[in-house]
Nucleic acid binder design. Structure first.
Lengths: 330, 330
DNA sequence: GTGAAAGCGCTAACAC
DNA sequence: GTGTTAGCGCTTTCAC
């Protein structure tokens, strides 16, 4: 069955398209009687407005484009949930795209999304290649780069410094007396933020005359199973370690499982340190150290920011900085 | 800077809108020279096509609407990743909405999405209220109900029987010699599928003259922390149990953590049984039983289905059934 | 191989 | 309070 149009609703109600349009949008100056008649006919005809026509005509959409690298790492869905919640009630609608950590794919997704003329766009990270940056600049809408703060934003920037997060974790672990460090990570060539954390961590180690004594890094996607496997491998090779820093909490959770299976006392003998503050890491039977990243709040902050921007209240600050809280040490 | 239009590109290239349109879409009958000129000018003007105008004019969109209840339970993002992957390369674009397990919210999201005139719509589960069902029927596009099979579909149906999954898990546990069962669940009034699994499980218990001897059910959202807490509470009250069935694997993972902390031998003394086959459950230092639900494959199957439907190849079957595999028993 | 005219369904702007 | 006119940016259709 063909979808009915505003014109048909208007005809059925015996008014013009314009009056029907006003009635359906709840405009003030429509007589009560007319409004009710229009709403009744719309209901009877199962009328569903056409956003394509609406947006084309009014030159604005209620769309916010969001591009994330993955759905398989829970932090991104959590961020999306934050964005979605922050947009709640504003009439804005988030549209998500997944780039699979692939810059070329990200560029194509952004291009696709821009062709829908969204009111704003949120992308992950600050490390887009020049061509993508150019597209974003040309889009002439608020651009929010989310999660990371280490770099030069195109427009708005909401996130935390991953370099600093690594530094602070290293400092906290040193202060707690740990000295013999290992590193276990995954997909650093894709997950640039994990790389920044590692670099920050290493910087502080170096300043203290130390370095990672053992490393296991491979190109696979971050996962619990992988963290477990790499930890097993490292602990089979050496026990001369009192702390392992992981690229993220899922990897660290795998590390905790490895310790449990091997019967290695943790945090006593080896302290496991991750990043994110995932639920799973907090419920673990052994205590692990982590930096809690407020990803839901970052999503909400981004939503709030772009709502005020698109309402013409230019936010005073282009950058909103968050600070991860370190837990699980002592 | 205002976005440039097809008309401007055409003017710059010295051709008509129509020719520019053909060149940009890669139509066959445009001379090579003309095409190159148009592409060059489009590039120079940073031209980005306008999908609003395109879709309004051509009366079709490349949009697939998808509504999920939550982003905080990893199974839904995994399903979305499957849909997104299945759509890859088809030119179709998935648009996601989150209902928060709220039927009224789901209805409004579906209404919103339909106003964009998507080519198909995918919703979670089969238990939409009549008004929502009516909207879906009126939409006159392929409707896919995903994940669940226990009910009457509006149109297409891809999923598994959660009732059966519960039955089969109970049967398998009984076959393995377990007799004294507990149940721990969360949010069953929202998560109807968890309720169906429980009902199936209880049915088989009843047929064997058994029942759940202990239950802990509350209305919170499913989580590892919650599963741990409810398990602690149950095991503090009784040890007269040899198996606990959980509403899902995250709850079950919490249960496994509880056993580890309490030093209860598992699966020896108490077997933990969940549902989904989450990565975390598989990497756990103790073995737990679970039904592995192929959520990514279900997403991909839905994508494949609607692609063939929208290409005019009516799929022969309206229902695609998946069967979860039970692991971790013996 | 290219172009002109009509129209997709709606809203903005203005008239009454 | 309601209607009219014009037009959003593209594709469809048909003509050349």
């Amino acid at each position: 069955m063909r979808k009915s149009t505003l014109e048909e609703v208007a005809a059925a109600a015996g008014v013009s398209k314009m009056t029907a349009s006003r009635a359906l949008r709840g405009a003030a100056d429509v007589s009560k009687k007319t409004r009710e008649k229009v709403l009744l006919e719309a209901e009877r005809l199962s009328y569903v407005g056409n956003q394509l026509a609406l947006s084309l005509s009014s030159q604005r959409t209620n769309l916010v484009a969001v591009v994330v690298p993955s759905m398989l790492n829970i932090v991104f869905p959590e961020m999306l949930a934050g964005i979605s919640a922050g947009l709640q009630g504003s009439g804005m609608q988030a549209v998500f795209g997944i780039s699979d950590y692939d810059m070329a794919k990200e560029r194509e997704i952004i291009r696709d999304m821009l062709s829908w003329r969204p009111s704003a766009i949120i992308v992950t990270g600050l490390d887009q290649p020049p061509e993508t940056v150019r597209m974003l600049q040309h889009a002439d809408i608020p651009v929010i780069q989310l999660i990371d703060l280490d770099g030069t934003p195109v427009d708005f920037n909401v996130g935390l410094s991953h370099g600093k997060a690594g530094e602070e974790m290293a400092a906290a672990l040193l202060a707690a007396g740990r000295r013999r460090f290992g590193y276990i990570g995954c997909g650093l060539e894709r997950d640039l933020r994990a790389g920044k954390r590692k670099a920050g961590f290493e910087k502080v180690l170096r300043e203290n005359g130390l370095s990672f004594q053992h490393e296991r890094v491979d190109g696979a996607y971050s996962s619990i199973a992988h963290g477990k496997q790499l930890t097993m491998s490292m602990l089979a090779a050496t026990r001369d370690l009192d702390c392992i820093y992981y690229s993220s909490d899922d990897m660290a959770t795998g590390g905790a499982f490895a310790c449990l299976e091997l019967g290695i006392s943790s945090p006593g003998e080896v302290l496991i340190a991750g990043f994110n503050g995932l639920d799973v890491a907090r419920a673990l039977p052994i205590r692990i150290a982590t930096s809690i990243s407020p990803r839901r709040q970052m999503g909400e902050a981004a939503a709030t920011l772009l709502l005020s921007a698109s309402r013409g209240n230019p936010p005073s600050e282009k950058v909103i900085a968050f600070y991860p809280e370190i837990t699980g040490i002592d």
